[in-house]
Simulated scan of single mutants.
Amino acid sequence: MLYSDMTPSHLENEMKQLQQQGQRAYDEANWSEYEINMHKWYLAKSYLIQDNVHLKIGRTYSLAEAHDRLTVNKLKGIMAWGIRESDAEEIAVPIAMLEEYD
């Protein structure tokens, strides 16, 4: 089932399962599997929170799971496009990965 078709309770269950799988991969030092599970977790969370997130074009946000920031220049659905501070590359990330910083 697609995340976009899931109910909030299905998304929460999926996130719980992905977190457990991610933790297992982390404990086993299986970094590629950990990253895949965490990316899926952020996608599921983005669908869960999309109606309550109010990101602003031109604003810079911290990137979760990274020591970097993103200046948002476009929003579409659950994805935010912007320029990554560390290398000036344009990337797209799930909105749940963006965190406000001071």
Rank of each mutant, 00 (worst) to 15 (best):
Y3Q: 02
S4E: 14
D5T: 10
D5Y: 06
M6H: 07
M6V: 10
M6C: 10
T7I: 02
P8S: 09
H10R: 15
H10N: 13
H10Q: 15
H10P: 00
E12Y: 03
N13H: 14
M15H: 10
M15A: 08
K16W: 05
K16E: 01
L18M: 02
Q19F: 14
Q19N: 15
Q19M: 14
Q19G: 15
Q20R: 15
G22S: 06
A25H: 05
Y26Q: 15
Y26G: 00
D27G: 00
E28P: 10
E28N: 15
N30S: 09
N30Q: 13
N30Y: 08
S32P: 06
S32W: 01
S32R: 15
S32H: 11
Y34T: 06
E35V: 00
I36L: 12
I36R: 12
N37F: 04
N37L: 02
N37Q: 05
M38F: 13
H39F: 00
H39R: 09
K40S: 03
W41C: 03
W41Y: 15
W41E: 09
W41P: 01
L43A: 02
A44N: 06
A44P: 01
K45L: 08
S46H: 02
S46F: 08
Y47I: 10
Y47P: 05
Y47K: 12
Y47D: 09
L48G: 01
L48I: 06
Q50M: 08
Q50F: 03
D51S: 11
D51I: 05
D51L: 07
H54M: 06
L55A: 15
L55V: 14
L55D: 11
I57F: 12
I57G: 12
I57H: 14
G58F: 10
R59C: 12
T60Y: 12
T60L: 04
Y61I: 00
Y61S: 07
S62W: 01
S62I: 03
S62P: 00
L63F: 01
A64L: 08
A66S: 06
R69I: 05
L70E: 03
L70C: 10
T71A: 03
T71S: 03
V72I: 13
V72W: 05
V72A: 09
K74H: 11
K74P: 00
L75R: 00
L75A: 01
K76N: 07
K76C: 03
G77M: 02
I78A: 02
M79Y: 13
W81S: 15
R84S: 08
E85Y: 08
S86L: 12
D87V: 10
D87I: 11
A88L: 12
E90C: 04
A92P: 12
V93E: 02
P94I: 07
I95D: 01
M97A: 04
L98T: 07
E99N: 09
E100K: 13
E100S: 11
Y101N: 04
D102T: 12
D102Q: 11
